[in-house]
Design a protein around this nucleic acid. Structure first.
Lengths: 224, 224
DNA sequence: CACCCCAGATTGTTGAACAATCTGAGAATT
DNA sequence: AATTCTCAGATTGTTCAACAATCTGGGGTG
């Protein structure tokens, strides 16, 4: 009854170099990729054993991941991969609706060519029907957008928010394709930016985010 | 050679209730209040002993505080109370310049009466020459501002940023009175808000933040 | 059916131990 | 005298084994 059934023997192990951070990175990646699905319980004993480190060290990793909202820690019950609900979706979009338009309107470091490049990638993925690549490009677009603010703290926050978005998608993997709609919306934003209409771009983005939130909430409600 | 010389005997101790979080709260409060100054080294052994808990548990607290950027952890060297420098100030203001005007311009939950109440408090403190109370009211104002976004994540981020601001002030305690200038600026913002001129309020706030950042950086450079 | 109680399992915390790394001071070298 | 070397002591990183506190699930009992 291991939390992870894929590693019978201790996997590639980092003997003495920030083991707790290393484990946190590993778990973060596995959760982001969908290898560990929302709601999965992470047993301390089993995980520590399979990762080849002690419970205490693993506990430090959990403390970190908990502060990133990637896992949920219930006292005396254990840790679980976070499974965002409707309220979390609203929280996510409240953040995005604040930060992203602000970057469009006032960010000092707009990089139009980088944004255009990402859109080109997304269009290619769309043509090839590669949903995963498209989702990736979409997230990349919004990351690049926040980079505009010149703040690594905001960048981090956005990274965490987008990680939570991925959890939402993983939790409803049978949902229709959300991402294809947004490729052209992003293109519209870049056009507005190129024309110097930054306030208008910000306003437009807010509208897009409202629509996306509503669509997600609708699908979450349907399956409840 | 204790890290804290004020507690000869173990202080009020919480025997069995989330000790690591409890210790983190305590340290956070002591750092915020200036009881522990930037640059202070926090020895694991000494602190664990004086707090009445084990090194392992204290270590979890450190992991948490490190993720909040309140302490700095140097591998194999130890943990220190964070001491922000000029780059950190720029980072802080990059965040504030993004989030706060966005809340003014688009936040869905403006609470004019709450903001006015805080300004009244600040003016009273100003009249009484109570710098600490004024600084407090000023931070409260900006916290309330972010509350406007309706996002607890942003609220948290703002809390951390303001905590870092306090560290900056603690690191240059002999600096002149920064806060008194800003009381009337905040009042101006509320006036613009009441008049419904939200975009103008946002733009004005951006100007204020630019000025504040420049002033802080100037004083930091002077003492370097 | 509801309630109480208990054994088993899991988490929370501890203390001691060892390995790895850093610090600082004295010795050796130039 | 200044610089580099070396090494013992201290501190952090990690592990291990144990115990206390709490939760889970299943029987009995009324």
């Amino acid at each position: 009854m291991n939390a992870r059934s894929t590693t019978p023997a201790p996997p590639a192990k980092a003997p003495h170099a920030h083991s707790s951070a290393w484990a946190a990175d590993l778990l973060r990646a596995q959760i982001a990729s969908g290898e560990l699905l929302p709601g999965t319980k992470l047993s301390e004993q089993a995980l520590a054993e399979s990762l080849g480190l002690s419970r205490n060290t693993l506990r430090e990793s959990f403390t970190l991941l908990d502060s990133e909202l990637i896992i949920t820690r219930i006292p005396n019950r254990g840790v679980f991969v976070a499974s965002p609900d409707a309220d979390d979706v609203r929280e996510i979009y409240a953040v995005r609706r604040t930060i992203e338009p602000a970057c469009l309107a006032w960010g000092p470091n707009v990089d139009l060519s980088a944004l255009s490049a990402i859109i080109a990638t997304a269009r290619k993925a769309h043509a090839a029907d590669d949903v995963a690549a498209m989702a990736n490009a979409n997230q990349e677009f919004h990351k690049q957008l926040v980079l505009t603010s010149g703040s690594s703290l905001l960048q981090e926050l956005m990274g965490r928010v987008l990680a939570r978005m991925r959890l939402v998608f993983h939790a409803m993997s049978d949902a229709p394709d959300f991402h294809s709609h947004y490729v052209e919306q992003n293109a519209t934003l870049v056009e507005l930016l190129s024309a110097g209409k930054r306030q208008e771009a910000a306003q437009t983005l807010r509208g897009y985010l409202d629509m996306a939130e509503a669509e997600l909430l609708r699908h979450l409600a349907d399956r409840a």
